[in-house]
Design a protein around this nucleic acid. Structure first.
Lengths: 188, 188
DNA sequence: GAGAGACTAGACAGACCTGTCTGGTACTGT
DNA sequence: ACAGTACCAGACAGGTCTGTCTAGTCTCTC
C-alpha cells in the first residue's frame, strides 16, 4: 500500500495517521473511523488516549507547533546572524511550499474549519501566530532594526502570502518573488 | 430574530442564506437542511435550483467573485490613477478586515475544505486568484511600473496576509501596517 | 379554463458521524 | 500471583448528512 501503517505505540500511530489525513484532506472530512482503521487501532484505544476528536485536532496542531519550534531553534543556533536566519526562514517557506504534498498552513486551514475564536483549537492557532510574530520581531530587534514590531507584522503578511499562494497558485512562479519580497520589506 | 428570512424568489433566498452561513460557519459544517430551513424553502425547491450542494458552493463563490469585480470596476472608474486605486484597494481590505463579521477570505476558506485542486469549486477559486493577480499587474503596468509581474505577486502576498491576519490576529494592530507594507513593496 | 412551472411539506433511504460499551487478550511491575 | 494498564474487535445508540420521492398548492400565461 502507498501509506503503510505507522509503527510504534498506539498513541503515536493515531497521531501520525491523523496528521497525515487532517493535513491532506481537512479536519471535518476525515472521521474517527477512518483514522482508527488506518492507524490499526481499536476505537476504545483511541478514546482512551483522546477524550474527543477535538482533542486529537489540538494534539495534531500542538505537535506541528513543537516541530516548527524545534526546526527554528536549530536554524537560529546554526546560523547566528538574525537577518540571515530570517532570509533562510523565508527561503524554507518557499521550498516547503513547492513540495508535492504541500497543502497550505495547517493552522490557517484548521482555522477555516473552526470559526469560533473561543474554541480550544483556535486558541492553539492563536498561540502559534503570536509565536510567529514574536519570532520575526526578535530576529529584527536582534539585528537592531528600528521598526521591529511593524516590520514583523508585514513579514507575517509575506509569510501568509507564501503559504496561501504556494497552495492555491503556482508555487514555481511564487518562489523567485520571495527573496525580493523580503528585501523590499526590509528595505535593503 | 437576529437573522430574518431573506426576501425575494426562492433561489435568491437560498443563495443569500447560504452565503451568510457558509461564510460565517464554513461549508462542510452547514448542512442543506439548515439552509432550506433558514431560507424558508422546500427541499425539492432547493434541488430544483441547485443539483447538488457543491453547485451551491460554487454559486456562492461565483456571486462573491462578481460582487468584488463590480466593486473594483467602480473603484477604478471613480479614481482613475492606478497607484491611487491600488492604495485604496488595500485600505479597503483593512477596513473590511476590521469589521465584526469578518471571517477571512471566502475563497481561501473554501479551499481549505476542498483539498482536491481538480474540484470545480477549486477551479472557481483559481479563477478568482488569477483575476486578483491580473488586477494588480494591470494597475502596476498602467502606472509604468518596471517590474509589474513580480510586484503583483508580492502584492498578492500582502493581500493574503491582510485577510488571514485580520481573521486570526488583531485587526486593529494590523491596520496601520498596511499602508507601510504597500509603500515598501512599491519601494516608494 | 387549462396547462406549465415554481413552489410547499415532509417522509424516506442509505450512508456516515461521534462516542459508549462489552468482553476479552497480553504485558508489566510488585 | 495479582493488579493495573494498554490494547484488541466490534456492536450499538442516537444523531446528521445528502439526495430522492410523493403529493399537493399557487400563480401566471395563453
Amino acid at each position: 500500500m502507498s501509506t503503510p501503517t505507522p509503527q510504534g505505540p498506539a498513541r503515536n500511530r493515531i497521531l501520525a495517521t491523523a496528521t497525515r489525513l487532517f493535513y491532506s484532506e481537512g479536519v471535518h472530512t476525515v472521521g474517527i473511523d477512518r483514522i482508527i482503521a488506518e492507524a490499526a487501532v481499536a476505537k476504545a484505544t483511541f478514546y482512551h488516549h483522546f477524550p474527543a476528536k477535538d482533542e486529537l485536532v489540538r494534539a495534531y496542531l500542538e505537535a506541528e507547533f513543537a516541530r516548527q519550534r524545534g526546526a527554528i531553534d536549530a536554524l537560529r543556533a546554526a546560523i547566528g546572524d538574525p537577518i540571515a536566519t530570517l532570509v533562510k526562514i523565508f527561503e524554507g517557506l518557499g521550498d516547503n511550499g513547492a513540495s508535492a504534498a504541500f497543502r497550505g498552513c495547517p493552522f490557517t486551514n484548521a482555522a477555516a474549519e473552526y470559526p469560533d475564536p473561543a474554541h480550544p483549537v483556535r486558541q492553539t492557532i492563536a498561540e502559534y501566530r503570536r509565536w510567529s510574530h514574536t519570532l520575526f520581531h526578535d530576529l529584527l530587534a536582534g539585528s537592531g532594526h528600528p521598526d521591529a514590531d511593524r516590520t514583523a507584522t508585514i513579514l507575517m503578511m509575506i509569510r501568509d502570502g507564501i503559504v496561501v499562494g504556494s497552495d492555491l497558485d503556482d508555487p514555481k512562479a511564487l518562489r523567485p518573488a520571495i527573496g525580493e519580497a523580503v528585501d523590499r520589506v526590509l528595505q535593503r
